Computed example of a mutant assay.
Amino acid sequence: MPESHDFFVATDPGTARAQARDALVREGYTVDDAEQGALRATRGSFGLTLLLGGLANDRTFHTRLDVQIMVTPDGRTVARLLRGSGRSVVMGGALGATRGNRAFEQAANAVHATFARAGVLTDSIPG
């Protein structure tokens, strides 16, 4: 499973950031501003996940994602979706890893769909 996903978009960094935020909020994430214009998205309960591990459902299983907004040297805007590595396994074993993978995939699909609907997605590369 990829640890990141790059979305190349034909829009300014501020608009890309707002669209990525909206996509993650619709997926049930709480999205906060992070350093250097990045976003930090969290969903679920850390305490319940520690208690129940992989038995927590998709919405209560604690997930954290980050979005970095960058501009390439040729002026293209990139929104990079990142997830923490290994944390799901620690917090829920094999079931936790599966839940973490599914959460990342769902978030990447939501961001992709948002950019595509807006007509700004030029490329999408899992990493």
Rank of each mutant, 00 (worst) to 15 (best):
R80G: 03
L24K: 01
R76H: 03
G75L: 02
A94R: 15
R26D: 10
T49L: 05
R26M: 08
E27L: 09
V78T: 08
L81V: 01
Q106F: 01
T98A: 15
G37W: 06
E3P: 00
D6R: 06
D58R: 13
R43E: 02
G37R: 04
G96K: 11
N101C: 10
G84W: 00
R43V: 01
T11R: 07
S45L: 03
G28V: 11
T15R: 13
A113Y: 00
G100A: 07
L51Q: 09
M70H: 05
T114H: 06
D66E: 14
A18G: 09
V31N: 00
G86H: 01
T72F: 07
E3D: 08
L48W: 09
R21P: 07
N101W: 07
A10L: 06
R99M: 05
A16L: 07
D33Y: 09
A113G: 06
F115N: 02
V78Q: 04
G93V: 03
F7M: 03
A97L: 15
F8H: 13
A113R: 12
G28D: 08
A116S: 12
H5E: 11
A10Q: 10
V9R: 02
S4Y: 00
V9A: 10
T114D: 14
R76I: 03
A113M: 06
L55H: 12
